[in-house]
Design a binder for these strands. Structure first.
Lengths: 216, 216
DNA sequence: TGTAGTATAATTGTATACATTCATACAAAG
DNA sequence: CTTTGTATGAATGTATACAATTATACTACA
């Protein structure tokens, strides 16, 4: 087997690093950075940093101002809107995946579901989180639609900080895993409408849980 | 009244220019450009050009390769997927706009609808196109949701080349104008579910028209 | 004649130098 | 004491210089 060693540019690495740091909450909304500070922190020149910043600005998670880089992050209102949007189109991804998925892809999806089921009773939040996230990302990919993938991916990533909380709750975590199983079975049966229905319910449930939590 | 003279950076201008040129079909899919060629064409250095290219790459309408900039554009398959996605979430934008729109914003939307109605019988395709596009963009904005705006905007822009064809057809153009009127009236009445229903039908109709045209 | 190796030139990737902008503070005038 | 003008410096915006990569063509060898 040939391993492709695609060398990732610094600009790309910086983008991934900053995006994660912002969406995970390491940099807080309202905080102001400077390019010079990032040069010191990341050890690369301003050029790749700026290329990354432009992309982050396009995603509306930072704003480049004359005084520095303003961290915007994801607000509670943003989060609600994002889950409302995902409720409507992530079902479409499940629908298309049910139509287009190959046997090989199906096995990859099955393994992800089963690993999540394996970690849930062990309360291994980190690994549950990885599998939970991977399940959704695989469905985006297996939908076979680049525009749908491109649309869902940034929305998915922006829920990072809040998804973590769901995964740490034992009750929600168990339900979530069951919902993934139901979606998987529908996709495996190539029952597109059912896969869509289950996925829409799954996102709606996640939305309800996060909102309930937000209103303490 | 204070006029804000926000000076737009070269990077931003280059992005807008290249995006339009690619999505309008001036650069054809498969074509390969180089940064040096763009330096000559646009009269700016590589730095702002590269910042723009990174954003275009993120939108998947170009690909930066070691041999140059590969133009991807928007395929027929992409277009179908995009309209399927828009069918599902542009209704949400209309729904939210019906809830959140102010009287002042309502007048701006009304003027857009009425100007479109004014130009349709005159067969002024350019101006019809501008108003048609503006109608949708205003609703994105008046929805009051930044994530929804950010999600819909790139999808809307990618239909540019194909929307033009719809506008030039007298029958579809007249229907489209009527559909905008119906959506507007529902929003004006703050009837969110109705606004959503009409918008979904409107996008579905546009999709049907474009697909019928594509299958000649 | 075919194939593997290698030189090369064109292109992107990165770093740095220079230009411009703009918030801030401070001083002067009313 | 308020307000307006202006100097200043820190930051982004832009241009250019340098490094690394890679497809291509050519050469040498089997």
């Amino acid at each position: 087997m040939i391993i492709e060693h695609k060398s990732i540019s610094l600009a790309e690495q910086v983008f991934d690093r900053l995006e994660t740091d912002i969406l995970s909450g390491k940099y807080q909304p309202g905080e102001v950075l400077t390019e010079l500070k990032l040069v010191g922190d990341l050890g690369v020149s301003r050029t790749p940093i700026r290329e990354a910043l432009r992309r982050l600005e396009q995603e509306h998670i930072i704003e480049m101002t004359p005084r520095g880089i303003l961290i915007l992050g994801v607000s509670q209102k943003d989060l609600e809107d994002i889950l409302e949007i995902r409720t409507r189109i992530e079902g479409l991804a499940a629908y298309m995946a049910a139509q287009n998925i190959t046997d090989e892809q199906l096995e990859e999806l099955r393994e992800t579901v089963e690993l999540q089921e394996f970690y849930v009773p062990k309360h291994d939040a980190d690994r549950i989180n990885v599998m939970d996230s991977k399940f959704h990302l695989l469905i985006y990919r297996f939908s076979g639609s680049v525009p749908l993938y491109d649309t869902l991916m940034p929305l998915h990533k922006k829920v990072l900080k809040y998804r973590r909380a769901s995964v740490e709750n034992e009750v929600r975590s168990a339900y979530s895993s069951q919902e993934h199983r139901a979606i998987f079975e529908a996709i495996a049966a190539h029952d597109a409408p059912l896969a869509e229905k289950y996925m829409m319910e799954h996102i709606a449930n996640a939305k309800d849980y996060i909102q309930k939590k937000g209103n303490h």
